[in-house]
């Protein structure tokens, strides 16, 4: 008798575990430490994503799967959390990310001028990265500093009461930094 073989649907349901990009030693240790803080490993999802992003600059599909395996979740569940937060990057970004607030207060106080000046200076559109990989510009809703509008995050620093020239100055500084 002929043995039964699986149909090509097997490829359709390809096991995601085969596409894991393994965690490095630091990520592994740091995530393990976070897990101990919670009754369920799943609770460490956000921290795990932050740890990987801090190491890699962004979170790849392969790393999502590695985190899923480590936290006993499905990659879909991890990705659901990862894509919810706009500060978790699911695509590669530049060394410095400039998050320019486009919410109502900043809009009133000159967001459009800032955006125009910055995109002209760096010669990229919102959401893009400079060719040298130094800077990415992302529009972002409210940074929680409306009293200092217009504001932006440059790397992990918040910049207040920006003018086109002060923003360009910050962007130039970022570009001059070693990659």
């Amino acid at each position: 008798m002929t043995p039964i073989i699986a149909t090509d649907a097997a490829a359709h349901c390809a096991d995601w575990r085969l596409q894991i990009e393994p965690l490095n030693e630091y990520e592994e240790t740091a995530i393990a430490a976070e897990i101990t803080h919670y009754p369920q490993p799943q609770a460490a999802t956000i921290e795990a994503l932050k740890i990987v992003q801090q190491q890699q600059g962004w979170v790849s599909d392969g790393k999502i799967k590695a985190i899923a395996q480590r936290l006993h979740m499905s990659p879909d569940e991890v990705d659901s959390v990862a894509t919810f937060y706009n500060k978790i990057y699911r695509q590669p970004v530049g060394t410095t990310v400039i998050s320019l607030c486009d919410s109502v207060s900043c809009w009133i106080m000159g967001y459009q001028g800032l955006a125009q000046a910055l995109t002209q200076e760096l010669n990229i559109a919102l959401g893009e990265t400079t060719a040298d990989g130094a800077v990415t510009i992302l529009p972002t809703p409210c940074l929680g500093a409306c009293d200092h509008a217009p504001v932006a995050m440059v790397g992990d620093q918040r910049a207040h009461k920006l003018t086109p020239s002060s923003l360009i100055e910050l962007a130039r500084l970022a570009q001059e930094q070693p990659l």
């Binding site: 979740m73 499905s74 990705d79 659901s80 894509t83 919810f84 706009n86 809703p141």
Partner: peptide
């Protein structure tokens, strides 16, 4: 099930 989720946030969900 654990392999159908909502991705993204705000007005941009999938």
């Amino acid at each position: 099930g654990d392999d159908l989720v909502v991705l993204g946030s705000r007005e941009n969900v999938y």
